[in-house]
Every structure is written in structure tokens, then in C-alpha cells.
Design a protein around this nucleic acid. Structure first.
Lengths: 146, 146
DNA sequence: CTAAACCTTGAAGTTGAGTATAAGGTCAAG
DNA sequence: CTTGACCTTATACTCAACTTCAAGGTTTAG
């Protein structure tokens, strides 16, 4: 199988497949006499594993770790469980942050309905954002939108 | 005021303040005869506005837009309201994605309790992630953790 | 005189996961 | 013999918001 066929079979761009090889997610490919990469179909399931792992929130570095362990003969199950628990904790933390941000935005938007643009002074730039608000929580810095 | 004092007053690194100037978030600073940047205290509230806007999820590009409008004499209120509505929509979309990801991770973790590492074959790399699961939703690709 | 604590500039590096560009070799069809 | 679809490599670029590095000038204290 040539790289284009692997690409067609997986939906992953040829450039990306070469990139994964450079990153160590795929073993160094065998070559035909003309220099073309030659694959057997184990590469398909490996690439599908990469995509499945990504959709579970794992990074390529995480996935490299799993694959390396598997390639060395170990079952990576315990390692994977740990990673998934970590990711779930990350997701929950991010959900918490986003909930707070959504609440902030909601308050800001609501206050914008009550404020008159004519009252917006030059010094505070925009009174929707910079007008002093009561009960503003200090932790709201450090929150960003991703 | 020198740049270090502005930094101390706002908690924003001097390098970052120079970076903001290059990005157009701060006007070109006046200079002392020795070349040092000299600030008056309007820069403090401007930097605080930047931080407040960031904590509302606005990007530096968004903030540059607001500041430019304000500097040209317009009240940016209508523009800001629009931005905040957009950001809230982004946050809600992200919350939705994260909820789906959290559910996926929960299912994966639960299945990992039921699976035996001894049953994990070489071919599927890790049966927690790659074992065929019923009712897997197609949209779960395209989700990433941020 | 020297050391420290400031300040200056420009350029490059960081992170993650690719994507794009350039310049070229290979192969089958017509 | 040429066109087009493949394949190869290396290098650079993308996004955002900084951070780090290198190499130097200025000021103040001892």
C-alpha cells in the first residue's frame, strides 16, 4: 500500500501521515526500490487508534507514550486508564472555568442593557467592561477562552 | 513613571508592556532624554482594561478593536456588546463540546473497569480506546481538549 | 571602580498539530 | 513525448500571547 491509499483509507492527509512518522507515532516505513513508502494494513488500525485517542482528548504526546509501551510488548491499559482519568479531571476543571466565564459574560451583557453609551466616559474606555462591579471575583483573572 | 513602575502597579511584565505597545494596544510611549519610556497614569487604567477584557474572554485583537474605536472618539459600547454576545456563544458551544467529551471519557473509564488487560490484544493497541463500542457518536471526532 | 538594578533593541523560541510551499523524482496513459 | 497523478525531501508558516535570549546603554549605591 502506498501512502495515498493509506490516506484514502483513513481520511488522514499524506502530509499528516509523514508528520506522524517524524513524530514517532508510526514506525519508519519500509520503502519500495523507487523510495516510495510501502505500508501493510496494520498502519490503518494504528492511525485509527490515533484518531480515536485524539477524540478522547489525548495529545499526540500521550498517544506516543501509549504506542511506545505497546510496541515494547506491554499492555498499556493501566497507563491509559490513568491518562483518561487525568483528562477527565482536566475537562471538569475547564468546564468549571467556562461556567464561571459564562456567568461573567452573562452579567456583563445584562449590565450593558442597563447602561447608556452616553454615560461611557473616555477614561474608563468602555463602562460595560471597566465600570466597577460589586462582588467581582478575584479568580476571574487567569480565565481565558479556548 | 518608568516601565518598571507601570509593571509593578499592574502586575504586567515589562516585556509584555513593550509587546502591547508593538501590538498597538498601547500608544507609542513618550521618551525621556535617555531613551527610557515615560508613562502617565492613564496607562494603568488602559492596562487594567486589557486585563479585564481578557478575563471576559476577549482576544488581544478584539481589545485592539475596542481601544482603536475609543481612541478615535467613539463610544465602543455597541461594538463591545456584540463581542460579548459572540464570546458567550463561543463559550456555550465549547461547554457543549466539553460535556460530550466528559461523557465519552466517563464511558471509556467505566469500560476500563470491566476490561481485563490480559484480553488486550496487540492488534487493537489498547482495548479501552479501540475496542468497538456500541452507539459511538460520529461527531465525537473533531473534539479536542483545550 | 564596580556591581546591581534599571532601561534599550531586535530576533528567536514556546506550545500543538498540523498545513503550505518549493523543487524535484517516478510512473502510466495516450 | 508529454501530461497528470503520484511520490520524495526540506523548510517555513500558521495561531495566540507571550517569553527568552543576546548584547548592550544608564543610573545609583557603596
Amino acid at each position: 500500500m502506498l501512502i495515498g491509499e493509506v490516506s484514502a483509507a483513513t481520511g488522514i492527509d499524506t502530509q499528516t501521515i509523514r508528520f506522524y512518522e517524524r513524530q514517532g507515532l508510526l514506525p519508519t516505513a519500509n520503502r519500495a526500490p523507487n523510495g516510495y513508502r510501502i505500508y501493510n494494513d496494520t498502519v490503518i488500525s494504528r492511525l485509527q487508534f490515533v484518531r480515536a485517542s485524539q477524540s478522547a482528548g489525548l495529545t499526540l504526546a500521550d498517544i506516543t507514550g501509549i504506542l511506545t509501551q505497546r510496541d515494547s510488548g506491554d499492555a498499556p491499559c493501566a497507563h491509559v486508564s490513568g491518562l483518561l482519568e487525568e483528562k477527565l479531571a482536566d475537562v471538569r476543571a475547564r468546564q468549571f472555568e467556562l461556567a464561571a466565564l459564562a456567568a461573567d459574560l452573562g452579567r456583563l451583557i445584562e449590565s450593558s442593557h442597563d447602561l447608556d453609551p452616553a454615560d461611557c466616559s473616555d477614561a474608563d474606555i468602555c463602562h460595560i467592561i471597566s465600570a466597577p462591579r460589586v462582588g467581582q471575583d478575584e479568580a476571574s483573572n487567569a480565565r481565558t477562552l479556548h
